[in-house]
Amino acid sequence: MLDDRARMEAAKKEKVEQILAEFQLQEEDLKKVMRRMQKEMDRGLRLETHEEASVKMLPTYVRSTPEGSEVGDFLSLDLGGTNFRVMLVKVGEGEEGQWSVKTKHQMYSIPEDAMTGTAEMLFDYISECISDFLDKHQMKHKKLPLGFTFSFPVRHEDIDKGILLNWTKGFKASGAEGNNVVGLLRDAIKRRGDFEMDVVAMVNDTVATMISCYYEDHQCEVGMIVGTGCNACYMEEMQNVELVEGDEGRMCVNTEWGAFGDSGELDEFLLEYDRLVDESSANPGQQLYEKLIGGKYMGELVRLVLLRLVDENLLFHGEASEQLRTRGAFETRFVSQVESDTGDRKQIYNILSTLGLRPSTTDCDIVRRACESVSTRAAHMCSAGLAGVINRMRESRSEDVMRITVGVDGSVYKLHPSFKERFHASVRRLTPSCEITFIESEEGSGRGAALVSAVACKKACMLGQ
């Protein structure tokens, strides 16, 4: 009897593995994704193909990295998701002549009506938060230079001027797309009239992360975010950046690689679950690469896999709870928690219980395998993109072996128990001629924006502006 049951459990697990095998990517698959990513990057950089390229390769006008001589107080704003952060950054000489960066910050959550109302409502709310922060720190009387981390696709015309191309991540505030974001912020500050600010720089969160990590390690020339969304930036040779005049030196390019796949480059790798996630998203047909990796989508992918296993009578005796059938019910943090389970399955059992399920031991094991399959594919897909960037940098610099540091931020990278190990191992397999160091950014977005502002202020002083 026991043997029969054991055989049935083994057969069930084997069927589960057959279904989950769809998520496995072979090294040849990853090399294919990497080569296609490089081709799209090239198209994004070139003037004649930029418009139709899915990977936009947006110039950021960040050319210099901090040298350690900029000092002063800077205000930093960070808008990239449902939370908005205001930070005071003091850049100065530390002990023994070292450079020191001290920060104080406060988080504000953005109400739904500000995210989806008008641009005026959104930026009025942001300036209200700045006003509140300055009151708390008794700094209303000071006109501070301000660095703005704005983590949406922007076409820069200068370091302090950028046109919002399109909202992502659930934002829909009308009247912002096609307009200068810094102008919208300046107008809102003017409307309030109770404080003055000098907006000197606007950067993407990947750029802010790279600059913040450069402060720790001067070989950091790539910034990457794996959180709600997924994106990367890197220092490109100016001669390859056709959208900006000049051939000397390097400029940081914001790849906006989340949109890779929007022209069909990933079609052969998309599964039924991916198509369902895409169809029910706020932007169907867009940001397809990001939807395979980002935390906004990972939990939902797992939920759809679990429903398939229920329908195949391989999980929960073929019956799903009402909660499990509800879109968004299986949160991405559950994926991390399930994979963090120590082996007694308590954590998995508790999560499934909150979803109205009474799982068996085998159910718990199957749910864990589903989570591992989805998150491992995410790590491997992400590795193909980064390997594409790094191999490109090595080739354009004609280096036999390139040493490089990548600064990384984002909740999936930082909080998932195995993502970074799987990701690092896969990147290294795909970049055999590179020695890569990964560092995690601390308060990256805010500190990085302030350091970019410090560079901009120093330049302005040198130019006598």
Rank of each mutant, 00 (worst) to 15 (best):
residue 2 L to K: 13
residue 5 R to Y: 06
residue 5 R to I: 10
residue 10 A to M: 10
residue 12 K to N: 08
residue 17 E to V: 10
residue 18 Q to L: 09
residue 18 Q to D: 06
residue 20 L to Y: 03
residue 24 Q to K: 10
residue 25 L to W: 06
residue 26 Q to R: 15
residue 27 E to G: 10
residue 30 L to I: 07
residue 31 K to D: 02
residue 36 R to S: 10
residue 37 M to E: 00
residue 37 M to V: 05
residue 37 M to P: 03
residue 40 E to C: 12
residue 43 R to A: 08
residue 44 G to K: 01
residue 44 G to Q: 06
residue 47 L to N: 09
residue 48 E to H: 07
residue 48 E to N: 13
residue 48 E to V: 10
residue 49 T to M: 07
residue 50 H to A: 04
residue 50 H to Y: 05
residue 52 E to D: 10
residue 53 A to L: 03
residue 53 A to T: 05
residue 54 S to Y: 05
residue 57 M to P: 04
residue 59 P to G: 03
residue 62 V to W: 05
residue 63 R to W: 12
residue 63 R to Y: 14
residue 67 E to G: 09
residue 68 G to F: 05
residue 68 G to T: 14
residue 70 E to W: 15
residue 73 D to G: 06
residue 74 F to L: 08
residue 74 F to G: 06
residue 75 L to H: 02
residue 76 S to A: 10
residue 77 L to M: 01
residue 77 L to C: 02
residue 79 L to Y: 04
residue 79 L to W: 01
residue 79 L to P: 09
residue 81 G to R: 01
residue 82 T to H: 03
residue 82 T to P: 00
residue 82 T to D: 02
residue 89 V to Y: 01
residue 89 V to E: 02
residue 90 K to D: 10
residue 91 V to F: 14
residue 100 S to A: 06
residue 102 K to G: 09
residue 103 T to F: 02
residue 106 Q to D: 09
residue 106 Q to H: 09
residue 107 M to T: 06
residue 107 M to S: 07
residue 108 Y to T: 02
residue 109 S to P: 00
residue 112 E to W: 03
residue 113 D to A: 12
residue 114 A to C: 09
residue 114 A to V: 04
residue 115 M to H: 05
residue 115 M to W: 02
residue 121 M to V: 10
residue 121 M to S: 07
residue 121 M to N: 08
residue 121 M to I: 05
residue 122 L to V: 02
residue 124 D to M: 03
residue 124 D to T: 03
residue 125 Y to K: 06
residue 125 Y to Q: 03
residue 125 Y to D: 03
residue 127 S to K: 06
residue 128 E to Y: 13
residue 129 C to E: 00
residue 136 K to N: 07
residue 137 H to S: 11
residue 140 K to R: 09
residue 140 K to P: 04
residue 141 H to A: 03
residue 143 K to G: 05
residue 147 G to R: 01
residue 148 F to H: 03
residue 148 F to V: 07
residue 157 E to V: 06
residue 157 E to C: 07
residue 158 D to A: 14
residue 159 I to Y: 01
residue 160 D to G: 01
residue 160 D to L: 03
residue 162 G to Q: 01
residue 164 L to E: 02
residue 166 N to I: 03
residue 169 K to H: 02
residue 170 G to R: 03
residue 172 K to I: 03
residue 172 K to R: 08
residue 173 A to M: 14
residue 173 A to R: 04
residue 178 G to C: 01
residue 178 G to D: 06
residue 178 G to T: 07
residue 179 N to R: 14
residue 180 N to T: 05
residue 187 D to R: 03
residue 187 D to P: 05
residue 189 I to H: 03
residue 189 I to W: 00
residue 191 R to A: 03
residue 198 D to G: 02
residue 199 V to K: 01
residue 199 V to E: 02
residue 199 V to I: 01
residue 200 V to A: 01
residue 201 A to G: 05
residue 205 D to P: 00
residue 206 T to W: 06
residue 209 T to C: 01
residue 210 M to D: 00
residue 212 S to D: 15
residue 212 S to E: 03
residue 222 V to H: 00
residue 223 G to F: 02
residue 226 V to C: 05
residue 228 T to W: 06
residue 231 N to P: 05
residue 232 A to D: 02
residue 235 M to F: 15
residue 237 E to H: 05
residue 237 E to T: 00
residue 239 Q to C: 10
residue 248 E to P: 08
residue 248 E to N: 04
residue 250 R to F: 15
residue 252 C to P: 10
residue 253 V to E: 01
residue 255 T to D: 01
residue 257 W to N: 02
residue 261 G to K: 00
residue 261 G to R: 03
residue 261 G to P: 03
residue 262 D to E: 08
residue 264 G to F: 14
residue 264 G to P: 00
residue 265 E to V: 12
residue 267 D to M: 15
residue 268 E to S: 12
residue 268 E to N: 14
residue 269 F to Y: 06
residue 271 L to V: 10
residue 274 D to T: 01
residue 282 A to L: 14
residue 284 P to A: 14
residue 285 G to C: 05
residue 286 Q to K: 15
residue 286 Q to S: 13
residue 291 K to A: 07
residue 292 L to C: 14
residue 295 G to K: 02
residue 296 K to L: 05
residue 298 M to K: 05
residue 299 G to P: 13
residue 302 V to P: 14
residue 309 L to Y: 10
residue 310 V to M: 06
residue 311 D to I: 15
residue 311 D to T: 08
residue 313 N to W: 10
residue 314 L to Y: 14
residue 315 L to V: 11
residue 315 L to D: 01
residue 315 L to T: 09
residue 317 H to T: 15
residue 319 E to V: 09
residue 321 S to W: 08
residue 321 S to E: 11
residue 323 Q to W: 06
residue 324 L to Y: 05
residue 331 E to L: 11
residue 336 S to Q: 06
residue 336 S to F: 11
residue 336 S to D: 04
residue 337 Q to L: 10
residue 337 Q to A: 14
residue 337 Q to S: 10
residue 339 E to A: 04
residue 341 D to S: 11
residue 341 D to K: 13
residue 341 D to F: 10
residue 341 D to V: 08
residue 344 D to E: 06
residue 345 R to V: 09
residue 347 Q to P: 14
residue 348 I to M: 12
residue 349 Y to A: 09
residue 349 Y to C: 08
residue 353 S to Y: 07
residue 354 T to V: 15
residue 357 L to Q: 12
residue 358 R to H: 09
residue 359 P to Q: 09
residue 363 D to C: 09
residue 364 C to V: 09
residue 368 R to T: 08
residue 369 R to E: 12
residue 371 C to E: 12
residue 373 S to W: 06
residue 373 S to C: 11
residue 375 S to T: 11
residue 375 S to L: 01
residue 376 T to Y: 08
residue 377 R to T: 00
residue 378 A to C: 06
residue 379 A to E: 04
residue 379 A to R: 02
residue 381 M to W: 00
residue 385 G to A: 02
residue 386 L to H: 02
residue 386 L to K: 02
residue 387 A to T: 03
residue 389 V to P: 04
residue 390 I to V: 09
residue 390 I to D: 02
residue 390 I to K: 01
residue 395 E to P: 09
residue 399 E to G: 08
residue 399 E to Y: 11
residue 399 E to I: 14
residue 399 E to N: 14
residue 399 E to F: 08
residue 401 V to Y: 09
residue 401 V to R: 10
residue 401 V to A: 11
residue 405 T to M: 09
residue 406 V to R: 00
residue 406 V to K: 00
residue 407 G to F: 01
residue 408 V to Y: 03
residue 408 V to E: 04
residue 411 S to V: 00
residue 418 S to M: 13
residue 421 E to G: 12
residue 425 A to R: 11
residue 434 C to N: 14
residue 435 E to I: 09
residue 435 E to D: 13
residue 439 I to K: 13
residue 440 E to H: 15
residue 442 E to N: 15
residue 442 E to P: 06
residue 446 G to P: 04
residue 447 R to G: 07
residue 448 G to K: 00
residue 450 A to F: 00
residue 451 L to C: 01
residue 453 S to P: 06
residue 453 S to T: 12
residue 453 S to K: 02
residue 454 A to S: 08
residue 454 A to H: 12
residue 460 A to C: 15
residue 461 C to S: 14
residue 464 G to D: 10
